[in-house]
């Protein structure tokens, strides 16, 4: 099961993020999670949204440089060691994680951890075999986040 992350190239200057959020707001698209990785003058805004295809089109229409990327959204227990078991597994299997971030679900019981990896299919089967629940785009769209956490 594949989820989509929307990545937007943005210069580090006032108003860039506001532009993105206002487009998404206008299109009534919900943001599940957002991380921004930057160099000194430019960066990449990564987002998990409820309707990625529509969000992508809306952002692209505004002339911004945007990409939809396949990622894996894993459910982990929101308790000490919950993340560790996932990370240890990925390490053992030598999966290269390019980016990762998570958000906690409203229930407080679980967290969704989004990982951007190089071998996406193989990683999925590894996770499923190990008993992790992986969300697809639809499930992710209906998940209600409580707050965001960054890694």
């Amino acid at each position: 099961m594949i989820s989509y992350q929307m990545s937007i190239f943005a210069e580090n200057k006032p108003g860039r993020l506001a532009k993105i959020t206002s487009i998404l707001g206008r299109e009534k698209i919900n943001i599940r999670a957002i991380t921004i990785s930057t160099s000194d003058v430019f960066g990449v805004v990564n987002m998990i949204v409820d309707r990625p295809q529509e969000a992508f089109k809306a952002i692209e229409k505004e002339g911004m440089t945007v990409k939809l990327k396949e990622v894996i959204a894993v459910i982990i227990d929101d308790k000490p060691g919950g993340l560790d078991s996932l990370v240890q597994l990925l390490l053992r299997e030598k999966v290269n994680v390019e980016n990762a971030y998570g958000f906690v679900l409203e229930s407080w019981k679980n967290a969704v951890f989004v990982i951007d990896v190089d071998q996406i299919e193989r990683t999925q089967s590894i996770l499923e075999k190990a008993g992790f629940r992986v969300l697809d785009a639809e499930a992710l769209a209906s998940a209600e986040p409580f707050h965001y956490m960054n890694y």
Partner: peptide, 18 residues
């Protein structure tokens, strides 16, 4: 200016380009 087509969503790629 970065070529739109090459953008993969990866910051490292941009850093390499720079």
């Amino acid at each position: 200016e970065v070529q739109r087509e090459i953008f993969t969503g990866n910051l490292k790629q941009l850093e390499d380009l720079r």
